[in-house]
Amino acid sequence: MTPLADMSLLSSFLLIFVSAAFTDNILLARFLGMCSCLGVSKKVDTSIGLGTAVIFVTACTAALNYLVYRYLLVPLGLDYLRLITFIVVIAAFTQFVEMVIERVSEKLYNALGIFLPLITVNCAILGISLFMLNKPYSFLQAFSFGLGGGFGWFLAITLIGAIRERINEATLPRGLEGPGITLIIIGIMALGFIGFSGMIKI
C-alpha cells in the first residue's frame, strides 16, 4: 500500500497539486521551460498570459498522455517510445487548441492563443508528462500533478516578471543586463523555493 492510497481523494489531489507547484517547482527546482521564461518574462501581463496557457496545456496534456501511456503504450509494450509519443501528442494538442481558441473567442486568442506556438516546444510540459510516470498515480492524480506543475510554472514566471519589471527601472552594469540578471534572479528564487522541499515528500 502506498501512502497515497490511504488518503481520501480530495486530500491526495490537493497534496499532489501543492507538491508539484511548490516543493517540486518545474521551473525553479528542475530548471525546465527556461527558454520561453527568459524570453517572455519581461512584463507581468505577458508572463501571466503565457503562464495561464501553460497551466491549461500541462493539465490537459498530462491527462491525455496518461491515457495514451496507460492504454496504448504499456499494453503494446512500447514503454520506451513514451518520449517521442508525448512530444507528438503535445504538439498536436497545442495546434488544435490554438485553432479552437481562434475560432471561439478573438479576445482569448489575443490573450492566450499567440503564446500557444511558443508552448509547443516548451520542455516544462514534456517534463511534467514524463515525471508523472515516476509515481503510481491514478488518472485524476495525474491530472492534478499536471495542474500543479503548470501552476508552479505560472507562479514562478509571474514572480520573475514582476521582479524584472522593477529591475528595468534601475541601471544595471552592462554585462548583467537581460538574461544575465534574470538567471541570477531565478537562482536566488530557486534557493528560496528549497525551503518548501522539506514540507512534503511525495
Binding site: L72, L76, G77, L78, L81, I84, T85
Partner: peptide, 8 residues
C-alpha cells in the same frame, strides 16, 4: 520493430 514503427 514492426510494432513500434507501425505505432509511431
Amino acid at each position: 520493430v514492426l510494432i513500434s514503427v507501425g505505432f509511431l
